[in-house]
């Protein structure tokens, strides 16, 4: 079973999100990175782009698949993690320490789950 940090919130589409002073940091869960396999590239939006809760803001590529990443919140992209553009393996190696984007000016969120509820989602998918 995957270990999902208690202090984070989760989406049913396997993103994690953490709120601090109105800035929402978004990443991929352990379940997501494991089922994707070796991630070879991450397509991210640009700073200043708007994102909408429940809608795709980018995608992650493995060798033979590509999967959308959905935004847990509606808002504006404040920062993107440039490091993963050069080193996408970080998402596999440390998914909870490797964020994808930070969003501010948040106007709404997707239904967010706590770690326990999210683990149930994963258990049902497996």
């Amino acid at each position: 079973m995957f270990k999902n940090p208690e202090e984070l919130q989760y989406t049913k589409t396997h993103e994690w999100v953490k709120e601090e002073d109105g800035i929402y940091t978004v990443g991929l869960t352990d379940y997501a990175q494991d089922s994707l396999g070796d991630i070879v590239f991450v397509n991210l939006p640009q700073v200043g782009d708007t994102v909408a809760a429940g809608e795709s803001f980018g995608d992650v590529e493995s060798v033979k698949a590509v999967s959308d990443v959905f935004s847990p919140v509606s808002g504006v992209v404040a920062e993107i993690n440039e490091e993963i553009l050069d080193n996408p393996a970080l998402v596999n190696e440390d998914c909870y320490g490797t964020w994808l984007i930070k969003v501010n000016e948040v106007t709404g969120t997707e239904e967010l789950l706590d770690a326990k509820a999210y683990e149930e989602v994963c258990a049902n998918e497996a």
Partner: peptide, 9 residues
């Protein structure tokens, strides 16, 4: 770099 291509995307 096949993830750019039609058979995946």
């Amino acid at each position: 770099l096949q993830a750019r291509e039609q058979h995946i995307r």
